[in-house]
Write a protein that binds this DNA or RNA. Structure first.
Lengths: 244, 244
DNA sequence: AAAAACTCCGTACAGTGTTCGATGAGGATA
DNA sequence: TATCCTCATCGAACACTGTACGGAGTTTTT
């Protein structure tokens, strides 16, 4: 079907002003809040791939079609779930310490939150901005108050860190998932795959990888180093501004 | 159904050694290569969400079930598509210039490639490593030869940049998509959403955002700044090692 | 010549998001 | 108070999805 102006407006209405009580006819027997909670429970228990309108409806004990009186479509439900999760994050500017401690703490909390709720990964680059997302952005900008960064550069820092987290989350979560998998004989995914690599790789064709003797850093370690380097760069920029 | 040992092995077999000709019975009328090409055409023309086994089969003029003699499941087909795209990338270590130019060029090419083939975004954090992916990793490590970085740190740099690109790609592609959308009256997605923001935001509650007068940088600009900061941090680390 | 192994593919199953239309509840109006 | 009209509810249906199964036919091996 695709996105229509109507579905966009309905979704934004829901995000920003919620659902009014009907002027006539029977009252709602549910609330949007309960719907979102039920959807999050399903995602939590059985993963995103199991999150279907039918399952949410079943959990609430209503007919499937009923959901569509609360929510224009599934995409809107996902947007509400995301905004709900964002609302539970600690506002970055309230954290203790200097700008760098604040940013590091928020980035790590973000990563941890994605790890704990992997369903978030697959649904957080949507175009909708809800009230909680908006408030979070403001708080993140305020976490950089006092650095002397011009506004558009502070915005870029927030975006840069956010992008870094999002990019690394995929690998971390994937590693968690693959780490959980084991064959009936107890072999891990990694060891099965390594068997193939060993069998098929021609010696000498991959000198840089062959040179590595230690096991490569885990996705989480890579993330930590990436964050440190990125913030080193930002720090340099901040002192450049200060000294000028 | 889930992932079974059998499906993992079948996928890795296909990635690394391809499909042998059958020892008995009729010969194959297709090749895996043609199947992958057809799948990429469908994804290119109609988007990932339209990429279904039935459509690929229809495009090739064969029955749907036939595909399953070439490929164990859809996930394997996606893994093949990804490895195929990776194979088309320029090997980072062959680029001209110093390490920084090489890394920047590869990061930008990656981003451009994701923009041109948005279907890639939704399917590139899978756990499978194919021959092209493996060779690319080796080449990326070699692009950092001569920097003096210890091997596991070079690996982290590659991972850091790769993660950064992946994280920003979502926003860039989403912005492209939203930018393409226009209502019948010619309004853009952004302007519709801004109307809502203006209507619902209480003045004074978001001081940092209100303070911004210029429009915020585009996702692409944010990416460029993020890349520069990250590499500034790496550069500092490299000279730290050199001077020690 | 028989058997085995293999490709091809129609059909079916269990699921998906969403729409339609019937039913009846209940606030607004005469 | 009685009527009207709006609205929530939800069974059924539509057009899809990935994939398992089993039969038909083809090629190679025994």
């Amino acid at each position: 079907m695709g996105v229509t102006r109507k579905s966009i407006e309905a979704t934004l209405d829901l995000l920003w002003s919620g659902l009014g009580r009907p002027r006539r006819g029977p009252r709602h027997q549910l609330t949007v809040q309960r719907l979102v909670e039920a959807a999050m429970t399903v995602a939590e228990e059985d993963g995103v791939e199991a999150l279907s309108m039918r399952r949410v409806a079943a959990r609430l004990g209503v007919g499937t079609a009923t959901l569509y009186t609360y929510v224009p479509d599934k995409a809107a439900l996902l947007a509400l779930m995301v905004d709900e999760m964002v609302g539970q994050a600690t506002p970055p500017h309230t954290r203790p310490g200097g700008w760098r401690e604040r940013v590091e703490a928020w980035a790590r909390e973000d990563l941890a939150s994605f790890r704990a709720h992997p369903w978030l990964v697959e649904m957080t680059s949507g175009p909708y901005v809800g009230p909680n997302g908006f408030a979070w952005m403001d708080s993140a900008l305020r976490a950089l108050d006092g650095t002397g960064l011009p506004e558009e550069e502070a915005y870029a820092v927030v975006g840069a860190v956010d992008g870094l987290v999002r990019g690394h989350v995929g690998r971390v979560v994937e590693a968690d998932r693959a780490g959980r998998w084991t064959s009936p004989d107890g072999e891990s995914f990694a060891s099965v795959q390594e068997g193939y690599l060993a069998r098929w790789i021609e010696p000498g064709r991959h000198p840089a990888i062959e040179r590595m003797d230690a096991p490569p850093p885990t996705p989480e370690e890579v993330f930590e180093r990436a964050l440190a380097w990125l913030l080193d760069g930002v720090e340099r920029r901040i002192s450049e501004i200060r000294d000028q």
